[in-house]
Amino acid sequence: MIRSVSAALLALSLSACATTSAMAEKAADHPEARSYAVSADAMADVDAALARASTSRKPVLLVMGANWCHDSRALAGWLEQPRFAALVAQRYELVFVNVGMPQTGDGHNLAIARRFGLEELPGTPNVLVVHPDGALLNPETATSWRNAASRSEDAIFEELALLATTEIARD
């Protein structure tokens, strides 16, 4: 009887390791930034990005997320990869803004979202593409990034590449 119980416990332990290993493999499906940049003056960062955008004629890629958020860190991790970094450098002026936990009432820098016509942020991250004149170019998709960690690399890249062309259509 003791051997049967021991064998069952060993089997359970091994299956737990397999589950943990599978979860670790799933987590490795995307890079994850270690830290989501937090600025002392996020509005000034946005203003600076818009000033750069006026000169470069590229839209601002405004990523509003948080360090605690797995999806925010996943998206930030993708943006650090060479393929994404090249796209962003060529097509966007990038700025990260920490928004805390807006869905629980503990939000930060929410005036920035309101500045671009978003009255609330239902979660994190949010990806706003802003024309150099300050107009939000993607109001339909700006708050749809809460599943960034489960999106494929290609899906994220294709959406960012498509959003970059929105600015061209507007001018």
Rank of each mutant, 00 (worst) to 15 (best):
L14V: 11
A142G: 01
L162M: 14
A24R: 12
A16L: 12
S144W: 03
A161T: 08
R115D: 01
N147Q: 10
T166V: 14
P31H: 01
S15P: 03
Y36L: 06
A169H: 10
A85W: 08
S15D: 06
S72R: 07
N138I: 01
L94H: 10
L87G: 04
N138R: 05
N138H: 03
A51M: 05
V130N: 00
A49I: 04
I112C: 07
S4T: 15
A113C: 10
T20W: 00
P102E: 12
L136K: 04
R3G: 15
A53W: 00
R83G: 10
A40D: 15
H108G: 06
S21F: 05
G65V: 06
D45H: 11
A28N: 11
S13K: 15
Q81A: 13
P132T: 07
S150M: 10
V127R: 03
V38S: 13
Q90D: 14
A89S: 15
S6W: 10
N147H: 08
W145K: 07
T143E: 12
T165Q: 12
R115S: 01
W68A: 07
A66S: 01
E167T: 11
L9E: 01
A86V: 13
D29S: 15
A48M: 13
C69D: 00
H108R: 15
F116M: 05
S39W: 07
K26N: 11
A111V: 14
A44Q: 06
N138Q: 07
F96W: 04
A111I: 12
